[in-house]
Structure formats: C-alpha cells, structure tokens
Amino acid sequence: MKLYLRFMGIHFRSSMEYKASFFMLGIATMIASLGGLLSLTFLFMRFHTIAGYTFSQVLLCFSTIVMSFALSEVFFRGFDRFEQIIRGGTFDRMLLRPCSLIGQILFEKIEFNRLSKVIEAAVVLAYAIPRSGVIWTADKILVLILMILGGVMMFAGMFLLFAGICFYTLEGLEVLNILTNGSENFGHYPVSVYGKWMLRFYTFIVPLACVQYYPLQYLLGRSDRSWYGLLPLAGFVFTIPCYCFWRIGLKHYKSNGS
C-alpha cells in the first residue's frame, strides 16, 4: 500500500511536468463527456420524463456511473492497456519481481487527467442530489456511495477480464469496448429504459443494473425491497470470476518472445 502511494506520487509528479498538456487533456476529456450530458439535457427539454424518471433523477444515475467509470479509468487503466504491457515484454519483467502482479500492473499507469471527468460528475451529482426528490437519510447516502464504489469495481472487473483475454490473443479485442464504454454510455439512463430484455442482460450477465437501476429504485422509494440497496455489492462479486479468469489466463501465458 505504501508502495502504491509512492507510485501514485511519481505518476502525479511526472504528469505535472507537462502542465499545459495535462490540463489540456483534462479539459478535452471533460468536453468529450459533456456531449453525453448535453444530449441528455436536450432530450429532457423535449420529453420531460423518461420511463417516469425526472431529469434530476436520471442525472443521479448519470453522475454516479460517469464517476465510477472515470475513477476506474484513473486507477485501473493499466489493465486496459494490458496488451501493450504483454507485447512490449514488460510483463515478463514483472513476473520476475517479488511483488504482487496486480499491484505492478496498477502501478504501470495512473491517469490523473481523467480526474476532470470525476469533477464533472461530482458537479452534476451535487446538482441532482437536492432536486431528485429523495429524502436523504444516512442509509441512503451509504447506498449512493456503494453505487459509485460498486460501479468502480464492476469496470475494474471488466478491465481484468479483458486483460485475461489478452493472454490468449496477445492483443486487445476492440469488440469488448461494447461492454466498458457501452456500459458507461448506456448507464446514463436507468437500464429499464431499454426494455425488459436489456434489463435482464444487464442484471445477470453484466451487473450494470445492480449498481445503477436497482439501488436507484431503493433511493427513490419506488420499491419496497430494501435489499435492492445492497445490490451494488454485485459489482464487487463480479470481480471474483474475472479475477479467476485472469489467473487461468496467467497459467497459460507464454511470453511472446520479444
């Protein structure tokens, strides 16, 4: 842990060396995700509600998922770029070191410019919290935090899964971006908006609805089942099979020889 903090410090200082480009990239990331917010706003200006949700309620959903994704991009980016680590031979070097592998991969890359997206999401969240019509009690605040953390873990699990696939293919599969970027993009709205089948898909195959739709039901008091509030934990559970898969991939790993 101490080591991780040190690496974080190093990454932070190294990105601060190029301040202009750091802030430029930060702003660019922010603007890029602003497009989603803008289209959401415009759609609401025309339609007022979507599947019975008001603007601020959907914003609650939007901000938590954007924040989760951005946070997972800051800290778990190393796995997203895993193909480069494997192909460049960096991974072979990592195997030799007496440190935890996952830790080393996490140290590889920490992208602080994604924090601008976290800030954007926080602003939206701050706007949505008082207006969403939720009566905020201690347990509901806890659920909200759990939603964000569960989301981070879900995306981390996906990154881990892709990294595991890289052991076999030696290169990343673009198609899988449907899962990560797709979950972020479609997670802007409560998943039920896409119909029953998609809700099932995003409950049992990808746990997006568990960190987003079900706890939202609890927050808004739309459902009596209070265990809905605990479902974001599925995000944590999701990482277990992903981790197992990664381990299996690791056993099969043969260096690519470079």
């Binding site: 759609l43 979507i50 019975g52 449907i178 908006v193 896409y194 119909g195 998609m198």
Partner: peptide
Amino acid sequence: WGFMELLLYLTLSRE
C-alpha cells in the same frame, strides 16, 4: 450501439 439507442427512442415515443 444502434440497437440500444433505438430501444431508448422507442421508450420515448411510447411515453
């Protein structure tokens, strides 16, 4: 991507 967006707009048009 197209299919998901289509589903969103279908919900909107019904509502």
